[in-house]
Amino acid sequence: MTQTEKPQVFKDIEHAQLRKQVESYHGRGWRFVNISGTTVEEGVELLYSFSDGLPLENLRFTINTETALPSVSDLYPNCFFFENETHDLFGVQFTGISIDFDGEFYKVAVPTPMNPHSAAAKASASGKPAADKRAADASVVDTPVADEPAEGEESSDKKSSKKKGA
């Protein structure tokens, strides 16, 4: 028995083609499913998912936090939720969201916590003293480990090399 969708359809597009692609899905009556973001070196990789019953297709493209994306909440009203969330967590700019919370959707302690390379995160990191950032990050993770966040990635790798493999 298959557990998940087969085949998995990922289409790589340019961010300028996003609006046209979404209009095409809307015209064919496809349902909007999700917008999700992943931090990569060049910026944020966004994934827009649409479905028509069983077929599920994903549009994939990378964008940096300076370029503004057109909102699709006029075609799909419930997009406002995901666009506000992506803006708050990753720093991606959207223009024309139907209900725009202007960065106040989630109450986050540091700006764009999932994307430390965004302009907002860098500005706040240079502005705030190091002790504050440590306290803010420690509130996200509930483990009393001595060597915490600024060298977060290296310390977890050191620990993993000491542990036996999973």
């Binding site: 509930d142 483990t143 009393p144 480990v145 542990k163 036996k164």
Partner: peptide
């Protein structure tokens, strides 16, 4: 020390 290593909440 295996239990200490594997415990998710330390």
């Amino acid at each position: 020390g295996i239990c200490e290593n594997r415990c998710p909440t330390h």
